[in-house]
Design a protein around this nucleic acid. Sequence first.
RNA 1: GCCCCCGUCGUCUAGCCCGGUCCAGGACACCGCCCUUUCAAGGCGGAGAUCGCGGGUUCAAAUCCCGCCGGGGGCGCCA
Length: 497
Amino acid sequence: MDTKIRTRFAPSPTGWLHLGNARTAIFNYLFAKHSNGELILRIEDTDRERSKKEYEEALIEDLKWLGIEWNEGPDVGGPYGPYRQSERFEIYKKYVDELLEKGYAYRCFCTPEELEVEREKAKKEGRPYRYSGKCRHLTQEQIEQYLKEGRPYTIRFRVPDGRELVLNDLIKGEVRFNVDDFGDFVIVRSDGSPVYNFVVVVDDALMKITHVIRGEDHLANTFKQMLIYEALGFPMPKFAHLPIILGEDRSKLSKRHGAVSVRQYRIDGYLPEALFNFLSLLGWYPKDGKEILSKEELVERFDITDIHNAPAVFNKEKLYWMNGVYIREVLDIEDLTDRVINYLKTYKGEFDEELQKLVDTILSYPREYIKTVVSKVRDSFFTLKEFPTRAKPFFVDEITLSPDAEKHIQKITPEVAKQIVKLFKEKVENLETLKGEDFKKLAKEVAKELKLKPGMVFKTLRVALTGETQGVGLDLLVEVIGKERVLKRLNSFLQEN
RNA sequence: GCCCCCGUCGUCUAGCCCGGUCCAGGACACCGCCCUUUCAAGGCGGAGAUCGCGGGUUCAAAUCCCGCCGGGGGCGCCA
C-alpha cells in the first residue's frame, strides 16, 4: 500500500529559521504524525547567490531543538534523495528537456534590459506586467542561429490562454484562478539553474509528497505549479495554505518587528516546548480548548481542516507567559535544573559583562545547590535568561545596595537600620541553625522589641541580605544559604553603613 | 494598477459548514480584591466585541445571500 501520507518542509538556507517557517514546519510535522505519515526535509538552495551552508546547518539545528523530527532529509538520507536541490540539477534537466521537447516550454533570448523596457511600459500604461511572449514563436532557424551566436537564454513555461484553474485547498477551500493573470514564466535561468516554481513540482512529485502545506504567500504560485504538474503528467498532491503571521502593525512579520528567528528566542531563554506549543496555536485551536499541550497531545488533536483562515498577529506576551507556565508547572525540577545550567553555559557569551560574571559565579556552585535554588525561585522567572538575576541572592555574598535600597535606608535613617540588623544578628547568633520559620519569628521579635512595624523590619533585613527592596521570600533565602552566610552579610552591612 | 485571500473583545481564538441553546465562551494583556515581609506566582472577581459596514432572506442571523469598506498576500532570471 502506497497511501502513506508524506509532507515536507522545504526551507531555503538564506537566513536563520524564521518563526513563520518554524510554524509551517510544525504544522507539517503535526499533520504527518497525526496520520502516521512521514515528514521530509528538503533544502531549497537553487538560489546560489543567497544560499549559505552555515544557514543550512543552523536551520537543521534549530529544527531539532524545536523538537521536529523528519524521516528523510539531507542529514539522514532516504530513498528519494538527494534532499538538497543544488544536488538535483541533473534530475531537473531531464524534465526541462521533456517540457522543451513537448512544446510546453521554450527558449527566451530576451535580455534583462529588453524585459525592463516591457515592464516600464506596462507600468506607464497602468496595466499589470506580463511577459509579452516575444520569443514564443521563434522559428527553428532563429533558435539555431541565436544558439550558435552563444546568446544567453532562459527557458519559459508556455502558459495556455484563458484557462481557469480550480484549486481545492484544504484550508482555503475552493479557489479559482485565471491563468491569463500571469505571463509565460521562467523555469530555468540564463545561468542554467532552474527556478523554484519548477523544481518544487519535480521534487514534490518525485519525493511522493501527498500534502503540500506551506505559507499563504505561495497561493498564487500554486497555479503555476499545477500547470507544470499537468504538463509532466505527475499526480497532483493536496494543497493547504496557511495564513501568514503578522507583526503588531498587521504587516507580514519581519525583522523590523524585533526578534523573529527561532535562534533569537533560544538565546533569550525560551524553551522549545513552549515555542512549539505557542506556534501551533497560531491559527489553530484544539477542540477541547486546552492550551498547554505537549507535542504528543498536539499530534493527537491536530486537524488541518480546523485551521483558522485569517492571518494571525504574533503576540510576544502570550509566548512569554506560556514559557513561564512551562518553567513553573510543566517541567520537573531535575529537568528544569539541567536546562538552566545548559542554557547558561551555552549562551553566557551573549550576555553583557555584568550578567556574565554573575553566571560564572552561579556555575561555580554544585548542581545540587543550583537545583535547590531553582526549586525556590521557579515561580518568579519566565525565561531561562531571567534566572540569574532572580536567583542572585542565593549565590552572591557581596552585597551592593540598589538605588531603592539606598533610599530606604536613608528614609528610616542608617541608625535605625543598624539597630534592626544588629538586634537581628544577635538573635541569629544564639541559634544552632537558621530555619525559614525561625527567620519569620526572629524578625517579628525584633519589630516588637524596637516597636517598629514588621514590614519595615523585613524590608530592612531584605536590604541588608540582598541589597534589593524586593525579591524572593527571605525565609526561603535564609534557609538555603544558612546561618553563616547570613551573619557574614549582616556583618558587612553593619561595617559599611 | 491587476489577481487572490481574509474580517468575532487590544491580541490569540471558540462558535459559522448543519440559522434559535450566544443579551457571543476561553486564553494573554489590563483593573480590583484576597493571600503575603516585598516582587512574583496562586485564588477570586471586573472591565472589554452593537460578531467590519449597509442591505436583504427568515418568526429568528455572528451563522445564509448581495453590495461596500478595511486589512493582508501575490504579481521577478527570490523562495
